[in-house]
């Protein structure tokens, strides 16, 4: 399986292409790329990095701040989300 090497991120109405290393979370990759992605605790508690996974698949070690409504809507925690397939990822903070 080829891994995801970059992903699309939407923030403040702008699209970015973000390189991502193996095992990195979407948030860590975004911050490394110099993007001011909303975040705070980075431990899956506060919910600040909730974002809409418009495409792709991720795994999360914890997802406690996501309500059932959030999950139905396709929200993830960027600080926990690690790509889990080769499907293209599109993460949208402007949901």
């Amino acid at each position: 399986m080829s891994r995801v090497e970059s992903f699309r991120l939407t923030l403040d109405g702008e699209d970015h292409t973000v390189p991502i290393g193996e095992g990195e979370t979407l948030l860590v990759a975004a911050l490394a790329a110099g993007i001011d992605a909303p975040h705070n605790c980075q431990e899956g508690r506060c919910g600040t990095c909730k974002s809409w996974l418009r495409n792709g698949e991720v795994t999360m070690e914890t997802s406690r701040p996501l309500s059932p409504r959030n999950r139905e809507r396709g929200l993830v925690l960027a600080c926990q989300a690690i790509p889990s397939s080769s499907a293209e990822i599109w993460l949208d903070f402007d949901y």
Binding site: D36, P38, H39, N40, C46, G47, T48, K50, F93, Y95
Partner: peptide, 10 residues
């Protein structure tokens, strides 16, 4: 309204 928490963080 996620923007509020995002704004506070940033």
């Amino acid at each position: 309204s996620p923007k509020l928490l995002q704004h506070l963080a940033r």
